[in-house]
Protein backbone atom coordinates (compact mmCIF):
# COMPACT_ATOMS: atom_id res chain seq x y z
CA UNK A 1 0.00 0.00 0.00
CA UNK A 2 2.43 2.61 -1.18
CA UNK A 3 0.89 5.96 -0.44
CA UNK A 4 1.17 8.94 -2.69
CA UNK A 5 3.03 11.52 -0.64
CA UNK A 6 0.61 14.30 -1.59
CA UNK A 7 -2.19 12.39 0.06
CA UNK A 8 -2.83 12.54 3.76
CA UNK A 9 -5.67 10.06 3.56
CA UNK A 10 -6.53 7.39 1.05
CA UNK A 11 -9.94 5.75 1.27
CA UNK A 12 -10.40 2.61 -0.79
CA UNK A 13 -13.63 0.76 -1.51
CA UNK A 14 -15.23 1.64 1.83
CA UNK A 15 -18.37 -0.40 2.52
CA UNK A 16 -20.55 0.11 5.58
CA UNK A 17 -23.93 -1.38 6.38
CA UNK A 18 -26.30 -1.24 9.32
CA UNK A 19 -28.30 -4.05 10.79
CA UNK A 20 -31.87 -2.86 11.19
CA UNK A 21 -35.26 -4.47 11.70
CA UNK A 22 -35.97 -3.82 8.04
CA UNK A 23 -32.83 -5.73 7.06
CA UNK A 24 -29.34 -4.63 6.13
CA UNK A 25 -29.13 -0.97 5.18
CA UNK A 26 -26.20 -0.55 2.78
CA UNK A 27 -25.28 3.04 3.62
CA UNK A 28 -21.86 3.17 1.93
CA UNK A 29 -21.22 0.89 -1.04
CA UNK A 30 -17.63 1.16 -2.20
CA UNK A 31 -16.40 4.70 -1.73
CA UNK A 32 -12.85 5.62 -2.77
CA UNK A 33 -11.17 8.99 -2.59
CA UNK A 34 -7.90 10.67 -1.69
CA UNK A 35 -7.50 13.66 0.55
CA UNK A 36 -4.53 15.84 -0.34
CA UNK A 37 -2.48 17.78 2.14
CA UNK A 38 -3.94 21.23 2.84
CA UNK A 39 -6.83 20.83 0.44
CA UNK A 40 -10.55 21.08 1.04
CA UNK A 41 -12.48 18.20 -0.39
CA UNK A 42 -16.22 18.66 -0.49
CA UNK A 43 -18.50 15.64 -0.32
CA UNK A 44 -21.86 16.63 -1.73
CA UNK A 45 -25.10 14.71 -1.98
CA UNK A 46 -28.72 14.55 -0.98
CA UNK A 47 -29.86 13.50 2.46
CA UNK A 48 -29.25 9.82 3.08
CA UNK A 49 -26.54 9.43 0.46
CA UNK A 50 -24.06 8.18 3.08
CA UNK A 51 -21.96 11.29 3.66
CA UNK A 52 -22.10 11.26 7.43
CA UNK A 53 -21.60 7.52 7.61
CA UNK A 54 -18.46 7.87 5.49
CA UNK A 55 -17.17 10.62 7.75
CA UNK A 56 -18.01 8.92 11.02
CA UNK A 57 -16.49 5.64 9.87
CA UNK A 58 -13.16 7.42 9.39
CA UNK A 59 -13.39 8.59 13.00
CA UNK A 60 -14.78 5.21 14.00
CA UNK A 61 -17.72 6.90 15.68
CA UNK A 62 -20.49 4.75 14.24
CA UNK A 63 -22.65 2.96 16.82
CA UNK A 64 -21.02 -0.35 17.71
CA UNK A 65 -24.33 -2.05 18.24
CA UNK A 66 -25.55 -2.27 14.64
CA UNK A 67 -22.75 -1.13 12.34
CA UNK A 68 -21.52 -3.82 9.94
CA UNK A 69 -18.13 -3.10 8.45
CA UNK A 70 -18.21 -4.75 5.05
CA UNK A 71 -14.78 -3.85 3.80
CA UNK A 72 -12.35 -1.26 2.51
CA UNK A 73 -9.49 0.65 4.01
CA UNK A 74 -8.63 4.19 5.03
CA UNK A 75 -4.88 4.71 5.04
CA UNK A 76 -3.67 7.57 7.23
CA UNK A 77 -0.06 7.93 8.38
CA UNK A 78 0.68 4.53 6.88
CA UNK A 79 -1.97 2.85 9.01
CA UNK A 80 -5.45 1.64 8.20
CA UNK A 81 -7.78 3.64 10.43
CA UNK A 82 -10.43 0.98 10.10
CA UNK A 83 -8.17 -1.61 11.74
CA UNK A 84 -6.86 0.43 14.66
CA UNK A 85 -7.76 -0.59 18.21
CA UNK A 86 -10.02 1.67 20.24
CA UNK A 87 -7.00 2.81 22.30
CA UNK A 88 -5.03 3.71 19.16
CA UNK A 89 -8.09 5.43 17.76
CA UNK A 90 -8.35 7.62 20.87
CA UNK A 91 -4.93 9.03 20.01
CA UNK A 92 -6.06 9.76 16.47
CA UNK A 93 -9.30 11.51 17.40
CA UNK A 94 -8.52 15.08 18.32
CA UNK A 95 -4.83 15.56 17.55
CA UNK A 96 -4.84 13.85 14.13
CA UNK A 97 -8.41 13.94 12.89
CA UNK A 98 -11.11 16.14 14.34
CA UNK A 99 -14.73 16.64 13.49
CA UNK A 100 -17.32 19.42 13.48
CA UNK A 101 -20.93 18.32 13.56
CA UNK A 102 -24.04 19.60 11.94
CA UNK A 103 -26.07 20.91 14.84
CA UNK A 104 -24.23 23.31 17.14
CA UNK A 105 -27.27 23.44 19.44
CA UNK A 106 -26.78 19.81 20.47
CA UNK A 107 -23.02 19.34 19.96
CA UNK A 108 -21.91 20.85 23.25
CA UNK A 109 -22.37 19.33 26.69
CA UNK A 110 -24.98 21.60 28.32
CA UNK A 111 -23.63 20.96 31.81
CA UNK A 112 -20.02 21.91 31.22
CA UNK A 113 -18.44 25.34 30.81
CA UNK A 114 -17.23 25.81 27.25
CA UNK A 115 -13.70 26.49 28.48
CA UNK A 116 -13.56 23.07 30.08
CA UNK A 117 -14.94 21.46 26.96
CA UNK A 118 -12.04 22.92 25.00
CA UNK A 119 -9.49 22.16 27.72
CA UNK A 120 -10.41 18.50 27.81
CA UNK A 121 -8.60 17.60 24.63
CA UNK A 122 -5.69 19.94 25.33
CA UNK A 123 -5.05 18.24 28.65
CA UNK A 124 -5.53 14.75 27.31
CA UNK A 125 -3.50 15.00 24.10
CA UNK A 126 -1.03 17.79 24.74
CA UNK A 127 -0.62 17.07 28.46
CA UNK A 128 -1.26 20.68 29.41
CA UNK A 129 -1.82 21.71 33.01
CA UNK A 130 -5.21 23.01 34.01
CA UNK A 131 -4.01 26.60 34.01
CA UNK A 132 -2.17 26.28 30.72
CA UNK A 133 -5.17 24.64 29.06
CA UNK A 134 -7.42 27.39 30.33
CA UNK A 135 -5.11 30.03 28.87
CA UNK A 136 -5.04 28.20 25.57
CA UNK A 137 -8.84 27.89 25.55
CA UNK A 138 -9.11 31.64 25.75
CA UNK A 139 -6.69 31.98 22.83
CA UNK A 140 -8.68 29.46 20.83
CA UNK A 141 -11.93 31.29 21.45
CA UNK A 142 -10.26 34.47 20.26
CA UNK A 143 -8.96 32.61 17.23
CA UNK A 144 -12.46 31.55 16.20
CA UNK A 145 -13.66 35.11 16.59
CA UNK A 146 -15.56 35.04 19.85
CA UNK A 147 -15.41 38.46 21.49
CA UNK A 148 -14.84 38.74 25.22
CA UNK A 149 -13.11 35.37 25.29
CA UNK A 150 -11.84 35.69 28.88
CA UNK A 151 -15.43 35.95 30.10
CA UNK A 152 -16.89 33.52 27.61
CA UNK A 153 -14.75 30.52 28.63
CA UNK A 154 -16.53 30.53 31.97
CA UNK A 155 -19.97 30.38 30.40
CA UNK A 156 -22.21 27.47 29.56
CA UNK A 157 -23.34 26.58 26.02
CA UNK A 158 -26.86 27.91 26.55
CA UNK A 159 -25.40 31.38 26.90
CA UNK A 160 -24.18 31.24 23.29
CA UNK A 161 -26.10 31.72 20.03
CA UNK A 162 -26.08 28.99 17.39
CA UNK A 163 -23.35 30.65 15.34
CA UNK A 164 -21.23 31.25 18.43
CA UNK A 165 -21.67 27.65 19.51
CA UNK A 166 -20.46 26.43 16.15
CA UNK A 167 -17.40 28.61 16.63
CA UNK A 168 -16.84 26.90 19.97
CA UNK A 169 -17.19 23.49 18.32
CA UNK A 170 -14.64 24.57 15.72
CA UNK A 171 -12.34 25.75 18.50
CA UNK A 172 -12.65 22.32 20.12
CA UNK A 173 -11.91 20.61 16.82
CA UNK A 174 -8.86 22.75 16.11
CA UNK A 175 -7.54 22.72 19.69
CA UNK A 176 -4.83 20.16 18.93
CA UNK A 177 -4.21 21.40 15.39
CA UNK A 178 -5.37 18.22 13.67
CA UNK A 179 -4.07 17.14 10.29
CA UNK A 180 -7.56 16.45 9.05
CA UNK A 181 -10.73 18.32 9.91
CA UNK A 182 -14.01 16.70 8.96
CA UNK A 183 -16.84 19.22 8.92
CA UNK A 184 -20.19 17.48 8.57
CA UNK A 185 -22.65 20.10 7.33
CA UNK A 186 -21.18 22.70 9.68
CA UNK A 187 -23.51 25.46 8.49
CA UNK A 188 -26.76 23.67 7.67
CA UNK A 189 -28.37 24.55 10.98
CA UNK A 190 -27.40 28.23 10.81
CA UNK A 191 -28.81 31.43 9.31
CA UNK A 192 -27.56 32.32 5.85
CA UNK A 193 -25.46 35.27 7.00
CA UNK A 194 -23.90 33.22 9.78
CA UNK A 195 -23.28 30.38 7.33
CA UNK A 196 -20.99 32.59 5.30
CA UNK A 197 -19.14 33.73 8.41
CA UNK A 198 -18.53 30.17 9.57
CA UNK A 199 -17.34 29.09 6.12
CA UNK A 200 -14.98 32.06 5.95
CA UNK A 201 -13.71 31.18 9.40
CA UNK A 202 -13.07 27.58 8.39
CA UNK A 203 -11.15 28.63 5.31
CA UNK A 204 -9.12 31.19 7.21
CA UNK A 205 -8.20 28.73 9.95
CA UNK A 206 -7.34 26.07 7.44
CA UNK A 207 -4.81 28.42 5.86
CA UNK A 208 -3.41 29.32 9.27
CA UNK A 209 -3.10 25.79 10.62
CA UNK A 210 -2.62 23.96 7.35
CA UNK A 211 -5.09 21.15 7.93
CA UNK A 212 -6.81 19.21 5.22
CA UNK A 213 -10.57 19.56 5.32
CA UNK A 214 -13.37 17.23 4.32
CA UNK A 215 -16.40 19.45 4.00
CA UNK A 216 -19.68 17.59 3.88
CA UNK A 217 -22.74 19.36 2.60
CA UNK A 218 -25.89 18.80 0.61
CA UNK A 219 -25.69 22.31 -0.78
CA UNK A 220 -23.41 22.65 -3.80
CA UNK A 221 -23.75 26.42 -3.50
CA UNK A 222 -21.78 26.33 -0.26
CA UNK A 223 -18.73 24.64 -1.70
CA UNK A 224 -17.96 26.80 -4.73
CA UNK A 225 -16.00 29.37 -2.77
CA UNK A 226 -14.47 27.01 -0.20
CA UNK A 227 -13.54 23.69 -1.75
CA UNK A 228 -10.71 22.62 -4.04
CA UNK A 229 -12.31 19.42 -5.18
CA UNK A 230 -15.80 17.95 -5.06
CA UNK A 231 -16.99 14.38 -4.68
CA UNK A 232 -20.65 13.91 -5.54
CA UNK A 233 -22.26 11.08 -3.60
CA UNK A 234 -25.44 9.27 -4.42
CA UNK A 235 -26.90 6.20 -2.71
CA UNK A 236 -23.67 5.22 -1.01
CA UNK A 237 -21.43 5.70 -4.05
CA UNK A 238 -19.32 8.51 -5.45
CA UNK A 239 -20.84 9.21 -8.85
CA UNK A 240 -18.70 12.14 -9.93
CA UNK A 241 -15.49 13.69 -8.71
CA UNK A 242 -13.37 16.57 -9.91
CA UNK A 243 -11.99 19.99 -9.17
CA UNK A 244 -14.54 22.67 -8.33
CA UNK A 245 -14.09 24.21 -11.80
CA UNK A 246 -14.60 20.92 -13.56
CA UNK A 247 -17.61 19.94 -11.53
CA UNK A 248 -19.32 23.30 -11.89
CA UNK A 249 -18.47 24.11 -15.51
CA UNK A 250 -18.21 20.69 -17.04
CA UNK A 251 -20.39 18.31 -15.02
CA UNK A 252 -20.53 14.88 -16.57
CA UNK A 253 -23.55 13.06 -15.20
CA UNK A 254 -27.25 13.79 -14.81
CA UNK A 255 -27.32 13.67 -11.00
CA UNK A 256 -24.68 16.39 -10.81
CA UNK A 257 -26.67 18.36 -13.39
CA UNK A 258 -29.67 18.04 -11.16
CA UNK A 259 -27.75 19.24 -8.10
CA UNK A 260 -26.38 22.20 -10.03
CA UNK A 261 -29.81 23.13 -11.32
CA UNK A 262 -31.10 23.25 -7.80
CA UNK A 263 -28.62 25.89 -6.58
CA UNK A 264 -30.21 29.31 -6.20
CA UNK A 265 -28.33 31.71 -8.45
CA UNK A 266 -26.96 34.79 -6.73
CA UNK A 267 -28.12 36.84 -9.74
CA UNK A 268 -31.69 35.84 -8.85
CA UNK A 269 -33.01 35.44 -12.35
CA UNK A 270 -36.68 34.88 -11.60
CA UNK A 271 -37.50 33.58 -15.04
CA UNK A 272 -35.37 30.54 -14.40
CA UNK A 273 -36.81 28.86 -11.35
CA UNK A 274 -34.94 26.36 -9.25
CA UNK A 275 -35.44 22.85 -10.47
CA UNK A 276 -35.35 20.34 -7.67
CA UNK A 277 -34.56 16.79 -8.77
CA UNK A 278 -37.89 14.97 -9.03
CA UNK A 279 -38.31 11.65 -7.20
CA UNK A 280 -36.44 10.40 -4.16
CA UNK A 281 -33.31 8.32 -3.56
CA UNK A 282 -33.59 4.53 -3.51
CA UNK A 283 -34.22 2.42 -0.44
CA UNK A 284 -30.78 1.45 0.79
CA UNK A 285 -31.96 -1.76 2.38
CA UNK A 286 -32.57 -2.99 -1.16
CA UNK A 287 -30.38 -0.85 -3.41
CA UNK A 288 -30.80 -1.14 -7.18
CA UNK A 289 -28.29 -3.36 -8.94
CA UNK A 290 -27.32 -0.86 -11.61
CA UNK A 291 -26.95 2.90 -11.48
CA UNK A 292 -28.99 3.98 -8.43
CA UNK A 293 -30.04 7.23 -10.16
CA UNK A 294 -31.79 5.40 -13.00
CA UNK A 295 -35.31 5.79 -11.62
CA UNK A 296 -34.98 9.59 -11.47
CA UNK A 297 -32.80 10.07 -14.54
CA UNK A 298 -34.41 11.68 -17.59
CA UNK A 299 -31.75 10.11 -19.81
CA UNK A 300 -31.95 6.57 -18.45
CA UNK A 301 -31.23 3.85 -20.96
CA UNK A 302 -31.90 0.15 -20.97
CA UNK A 303 -28.45 -0.69 -19.64
CA UNK A 304 -28.64 1.69 -16.66
CA UNK A 305 -30.63 -0.48 -14.22
CA UNK A 306 -28.63 -3.60 -15.02
CA UNK A 307 -25.12 -2.68 -14.03
CA UNK A 308 -23.27 0.14 -12.26
CA UNK A 309 -21.21 2.01 -14.88
CA UNK A 310 -17.41 2.15 -14.88
CA UNK A 311 -15.83 5.52 -14.08
CA UNK A 312 -14.96 7.53 -17.17
CA UNK A 313 -11.91 9.76 -16.73
CA UNK A 314 -11.99 13.25 -18.22
CA UNK A 315 -8.84 14.73 -16.73
CA UNK A 316 -6.29 13.99 -14.04
CA UNK A 317 -8.86 14.90 -11.41
CA UNK A 318 -12.18 14.53 -13.12
CA UNK A 319 -14.15 11.30 -13.41
CA UNK A 320 -17.79 10.26 -13.41
CA UNK A 321 -19.77 7.03 -13.42
CA UNK A 322 -22.46 7.22 -16.11
CA UNK A 323 -23.52 5.03 -19.02
CA UNK A 324 -23.91 8.15 -21.18
CA UNK A 325 -20.14 8.07 -21.65
CA UNK A 326 -20.17 4.60 -23.13
CA UNK A 327 -19.10 4.75 -26.78
CA UNK A 328 -22.46 3.29 -27.83
CA UNK A 329 -24.56 5.79 -25.87
CA UNK A 330 -26.31 8.69 -27.61
CA UNK A 331 -24.76 12.13 -27.27
CA UNK A 332 -26.62 14.08 -24.56
CA UNK A 333 -26.05 17.75 -23.75
CA UNK A 334 -26.58 18.97 -20.16
CA UNK A 335 -29.65 21.20 -19.74
CA UNK A 336 -29.12 24.91 -20.39
CA UNK A 337 -29.54 25.94 -16.75
CA UNK A 338 -26.42 23.92 -15.98
CA UNK A 339 -23.19 25.38 -17.28
CA UNK A 340 -24.80 27.73 -19.79
CA UNK A 341 -25.57 30.59 -17.43
CA UNK A 342 -22.20 30.39 -15.79
Amino acid sequence: MAMNNDNILEVRDLRISFGTYAGEVQAVRGVSFDLRRRETLAIVGESGSGKSVTAKSLMRLLPEANTIFKGGEAIFDGRDLLKLSEKQMQRVRGPKIAMVFQDPMTSLDPTMKVGNQISESLRKHLGMSRAKARERSVELLKLVGIPNAEERVKQYPHQFSGGMRQRVVIAIALACEPQILIADEPTTALDVTIQAQILDLLRELQEKIGTSVILITHDLGVVASVADRIAVMYAGKIVEMGTVRETFYDPQMPYTWGLLASIPLPTADRSQDLIPIPGSPPDMSDPPKGCPFTARCPYAMRVCPTEFPEYTTFSAEHKAACWLHHPMAPNVEPPARVGGTR
Partner: peptide, 12 residues
Protein backbone atom coordinates in the same frame (compact mmCIF):
# COMPACT_ATOMS: atom_id res chain seq x y z
CA UNK B 1 -26.80 12.69 22.21
CA UNK B 2 -24.56 14.58 19.79
CA UNK B 3 -22.44 16.01 22.57
CA UNK B 4 -21.44 12.51 23.60
CA UNK B 5 -20.32 11.78 20.04
CA UNK B 6 -18.38 15.03 20.17
CA UNK B 7 -16.79 14.01 23.47
CA UNK B 8 -15.70 10.77 21.85
CA UNK B 9 -14.49 12.69 18.81
CA UNK B 10 -12.13 14.56 21.14
CA UNK B 11 -10.37 11.27 21.78
CA UNK B 12 -11.48 10.90 25.39
Amino acid sequence: QDYITLAKAKGL
